[in-house]
């Protein structure tokens, strides 16, 4: 059984009676533990695909099967429940709460998962340690550099121990050194067995994954294994 399976998936938006077809006839499977990049130019529908896979949006056609369960027609609250338990997001723009400690930022998903405050703190601390920020728990989010912010965001995505981590252009707002760090963390998380889905328009970033799904005009136009995978390395000393 695949972790993610989409069958003939389609999505159309109706805006003032004008229909826009964003995705159409999408079929693929992603196994547990894979590191997949969804790659395509802007407007190709890759973000919409990620939103559907991340339970932020619903398909208008076809099926989305997650862990053997058809999740194409869940209600808003059921989708929220899935987001709370099964997925974590890393966004291009970090999306941290301003003027809030990074510990509280990372603990945010656990607040909605209903954990006790003690558990929240402990898990958030563990997650921050794993991205090398254990020494800055009480820093405010706006006191951090871009690379550090993205590492906080990764810790937040990790904290509820999700089945899948979605990273939407995670290096888009970072300098190359910080970008490298972020890719290295994602690769090491994948090595520990976590499923990662990376959304990007850059070939170079995509090649950090094991497999690339190429999207164009709402359709999957390529599904290939990365033969010459780039391993983000030699940045250990930076993550301390």
């Amino acid at each position: 059984m695949s972790l993610i399976e989409v069958q003939n998936l389609g999505k159309e938006y109706i805006n003032e009676e004008v229909k826009t077809l964003v995705l159409q006839g999408v079929n693929f499977k992603i196994e547990k533990g894979e590191f997949v990049a969804i790659m395509g130019p802007s407007g190709s529908g890759k973000s919409t695909l990620m939103h559907i896979l991340g339970f932020l949006d619903k398909p208008t056609e076809g099926k989305f099967i997650f862990n053997g369960q058809d999740v194409s027609t869940l209600s808003d609250d059921e989708l929220a429940e899935m987001r709370s338990k099964e997925v974590g997001f890393v966004f291009q723009a970090f999306n941290l709460l301003p003027r809030t400690s990074i510990l509280d930022n990372v603990a945010l998903p656990l607040v909605y998962a209903g954990l006790s405050e003690k558990e929240q703190k402990q898990k958030a601390k563990d997650a921050l340690m794993s991205v090398g920020l254990g020494h800055r728990l009480e820093y405010m989010s706006n006191q951090l550099s871009g690379g550090e912010k993205q590492r906080v965001a990764i810790a937040r995505a990790l904290v509820n121990n999700p089945a899948v981590i979605f990273a939407d252009e995670p290096t888009g707002n970072l300098d190359s050194k910080s970008g490298l760090q972020v890719m290295r963390i994602l690769q090491s998380l994948n090595k520990q067995g976590r499923t990662i889905i990376l959304v990007t328009h850059e070939r170079y970033t995509a090649e950090h994954a094991q497999r690339i799904l190429r999207i164009r005009d709402g359709e999957v136009v390529g599904d290939e294994k990365v033969s010459n995978r780039i391993i983000a390395d030699g940045v250990d000393e930076l993550i301390k």
């Binding site: 991340g54 932020l56 808003d76 609250d77 929220a80 429940e81 987001r83 709370s84 338990k85 974590g88 997001f89 999306n95 709460l97 945010l108 998903p109 909605y112 998962a113 937040r156 509820n160």
Partner: peptide, 16 residues
């Protein structure tokens, strides 16, 4: 708005 979007993305339900 973005904060609300984020809270929802990390699992907040409407009633939260």
């Amino acid at each position: 708005t973005r904060e609300i979007g984020l809270r929802k993305a990390v699992g907040a339900k409407n009633h939260h």
